[in-house]
Design a binder for these strands. Structure first.
Lengths: 329, 329
DNA sequence: CTGAAAGCGCTAACAC
DNA sequence: GTGTTAGCGCTTTCAG
């Protein structure tokens, strides 16, 4: 057997048609009769033909890839290896793209300044770009240069986006704690500039206002260390608190460690609700009650949207955030 | 300003040279005088020229990408989203590739049968393929069709590989427990077919033999649930055990939960050492003493090797596995 | 509905 | 050293 991969030329010859016709049926584009379609398909199967993606990309002016962009915002590349979010995004995207016969490309977007990285990604985009976690301003910039873009977090009005009910989730979390009889409920919030964190903060504020609870808040970022520190601090300032709402499971895992370190028990003395339902929630001890963010579903939906054609500007798709009860409450 | 991206033709014209010369300096290949190099470089900067990767790929017969392959072995795509390993691999690879001006492509390799997926990846490979976690047999198959391949786990003799000292790590872990005064040391092993797990098993056996310890083993897979189950089981069968060596942090996190659930304290009653030093280790409560696998370093080294040219068959690079002491011992 | 032919932007032989 | 030229394998007008 020949070592060379067959080209579309070979397929056309084998099927006794022109390259154009072969191309049409391979891309199942209109304009080919049933009999010819059958012959071409047979030839494809026979020769085990697989299109050369590079040639396709050049000819059509666009690689058949979905670009996933992760902006690091100077947090260093480390966060990618430690934060459970990104791999869930990939887990959602990969099967969809694979099923479509396209490919996944990873873009870092951390060169300095970020704007250049974003512009370059936009100019080279393939079938579409998925924004894993990006500021509205940057998303808008990218979307201006490349329409086929979807954000997985709340974003600028023009940019198509998958939106989870972070506000509602935070309300539900605090309410759950309240219903468990807790009244001294503290909160550990995420980064002040992160859209998800902002919404969870909003939800928290709304809930304590509604329930008539005091505002016992601290900032913890979205990492474990921040959670540990914030929890220690909170416990120092309010030794009588009996619950914590934490805006991220990773942070919550740190908070649990801090609570335990002060000799308190979870959930008996302090109960705690996290957010995300990531691997961190189930690794914590006790495992965390948390608000499930359907990251995989959102990423998969974003990908499908992109694969289906140009998403209309401002398109929105909404996702619920649901309570998952474990041992920490 | 024109919306069209400049081509190499534009650069050549602006610099007053031929396309070939422009190409040479852009790829900084030999065969261009200093003065011309300068003129071309100026034109590149001036026009903000960026090569069209699709055209490059087609002309040179190979896309400028590093392909990262994750084989799921029917575990479903979920593991990718929950197991901390894969994202550490990416965190190691991305900066290196980015610095080189190449791209990262993700390959799933889970179609049925796996062999086809592997063959297809080999036939379409770009600058090189990084095998995140693959059986020796599959790695060998891929390497046969594509020389520029590196495995991150112990693999077939012919396949270039990055090898961490898993055996030594396991020995060190058990020894650490022994030095802490523990004598009833149980072990929770990983999947019987996983090369890393096998080596850690070997190390464990070697250590208990050397130290004259009984073999108290159970199988836990590489996930949290398995760790929980195995630990409960072990505790049932050997209520007097005073330590556990667990072949994966995720599994160890589950084991800690199980130990706690039986009313025992970590590390007072049972101390525990994990393996990997992943995010799971620091999310556990208490945080886990563990054997650090330098995944990011290994992935980065593999990438550099690939980017430097075809790695010689059988090439090996060794990495230490070091003890990180935290609160679980 | 089908085929012929013109590139897509670049690399790499090959001449000069 | 430098330029000319022939493709890489495919998509996509444009005729027929």
């Amino acid at each position: 057997m020949s070592r060379e991969r067959p080209t579309i030329e070979d397929v056309a010859r084998a099927a006794g048609v022109s390259r154009a016709t072969a191309s049409r049926v391979i891309n199942n584009a209109p304009g080919a009769s049933e009999p010819l379609r059958a012959r071409v398909s047979a030839a494809v199967a026979d020769l085990r033909y697989q299109p050369n993606e590079s040639a396709r990309a050049l000819a059509s002016g666009r690689p058949r890839t979905i670009d996933v962009v992760a902006v690091t915002y100077n947090q260093g590349i480390g966060w990618l290896g430690t934060h459970p979010y990104f791999s869930r995004v990939l887990a959602g995207i990969l099967p969809v793209v694979e099923g479509f016969g396209a490919q996944v490309r990873l873009q870092l977007g951390d060169s300095d300044p970020v704007e250049h990285a974003i512009d370059e990604i936009a100019d080279h985009a393939g079938l579409g770009v998925v924004l894993a976690d990006i500021t509205p301003a940057l998303a808008a910039r990218l979307h201006r240069r490349c329409r086929r873009t979807v954000s997985l977090v709340r974003t600028a009005p023009s940019v198509p986006g998958m939106e989870a009910d972070n506000v509602g989730g935070a309300v539900a979390a605090v309410t759950h704690l309240y219903e468990r009889g807790r009244r001294r409920i503290a909160a550990i919030h995420g980064p002040a500039t992160n859209p998800c964190a902002i919404d969870r903060r909003t939800g928290h504020r709304r809930a304590i206002r509604t329930l008539g609870l005091p505002d016992l808040s601290a900032d913890g970022g979205f990492d474990r260390e921040g959670g540990y520190r914030a929890a220690r601090d909170l416990l120092d300032r309010h030794p009588d608190l009996d619950a914590m709402f934490v805006a991220c499971d990773l942070t919550a895992a740190g908070a649990v460690q801090a609570i335990t370190a002060t000799g308190r028990r979870v959930p008996d003395d302090v109960s705690i609700v996290g957010f995300d339902d990531s691997i961190a929630a189930v690794c914590a001890n006790p495992p965390l009650t948390t608000m499930r963010l359907p990251v995989e579903d959102m990423a998969a939906a974003a990908t499908r949207l992109l694969l289906a054609g140009d998403p209309p500007p401002g398109h929105r798709q909404h996702f619920p955030v649901t309570l998952v009860v474990r041992a920490s409450t």
